[in-house]
């Protein structure tokens, strides 16, 4: 790569980096402007929401509720990812198993989340287990499908490479299969997390004794829009922290072979 081209590429990367940094402040600015244009009690500004968030965190139950929801999300996320990955790999590799169970996966994908939750609440009562289980049942089929497609897209050529050079199974797994699966794991994690926390909130509204969703349901009864937005924003901040603090660095590290400048 010539120096001019490299410089242009660096400038492009730096500009894109700045655009990404500006993205969220731009959203906040737009929100602020809109709240000033449509000045109303039910359309609070971001500053007011931030103040409410601070008050709820220091004098209210925000941190406790956030903690409860986070625990539920984390358990559901980990269990759904592990189960979905194992089943997805199995269905991707074993043709007869895929034929036998693919209809189950379709049923799972199309089962309304709310139905799963209601049925489990009836069977198991308004318990923590029922809530987390309902989230897992909703999420697992999505992870299965993503992983199954990932495994199906494995290169047969690399499979042959492993066989020709008689690589031991564990070495093949580590050096050939896992690197091919990583992009799909990251995709499933990203979509999984966004879906799970939304479902958890809905299920908390439906039946729980605490958590972000539970608190939002109470605020809804009082039309406390600033409180609702403060609780939502606080969880979005957690999700963003996970995205930029965990997923992105993990992705950069795992996929660095794709992005090394030539």
């Amino acid at each position: 790569m010539s120096r001019a081209v490299a410089t242009r590429a660096n400038l492009g990367t730096r500009r894109n980096g700045w655009l990404e940094v500006l993205s969220l402040p731009l959203l906040l600015l737009l929100w602020q402007v809109l709240s000033m244009v449509f000045a109303h009690r039910l359309f609070p500004s971001p500053i007011l929401v931030a103040e409410e968030m601070w008050r709820a965190a220091t004098a209210g139950n925000l941190l406790v509720d956030l903690g409860k929801t986070l625990v539920r999300v984390s358990i559901a996320f980990v269990v759904a990812m592990v189960l979905g990955t194992i089943i997805g790999i199995a269905l991707g590799r074993v043709r007869w198993a895929d034929r036998l169970f693919s209809a189950w996966v379709v049923v799972g994908l199309n089962l309304p989340a709310i139905v799963v939750a209601i049925v489990l609440f009836i069977w198991l009562g308004l318990t923590e287990v029922a809530l987390v289980l309902a989230v897992i049942v909703n999420k697992v089929p999505l992870v299965i499908v993503t992983m199954r497609e990932g495994v199906r897209s494995f290169s047969a050529d690399f499979d042959e490479l492993g066989r020709v050079f008689r690589m031991p199974p564990l070495r093949r797994l580590r050096l050939i299969f896992v690197p091919q699966l990583v992009p799909f794991v990251l995709a499933a994690a990203r979509t999984g997390l966004s879906l799970i926390w939304k479902i958890v909130l809905v299920f908390e509204v439906l039946g729980s004794d605490g958590g972000v969703g539970y608190r939002i349901a109470i605020m809804f009864q009082f039309f406390d829009i600033a409180g609702i937005l403060a609780y939502s924003a606080s969880f979005i901040l957690v999700v963003l922290a996970f995205e930029y603090g965990v997923l992105r660095p993990l992705e950069r590290r795992a996929l660095r072979w794709q992005s090394v400048p030539g």
Binding site: D157, F165, R166, P179, Q258
Partner: peptide, 25 residues
Amino acid sequence: TPGFVFQDPRLLPWLTAMNNIRAVD
């Protein structure tokens, strides 16, 4: 194990040249 050369280079794209050699042995 024989030294085998495929029709295509068949290098693992996530490994460096050196690690592609070390991966198979």
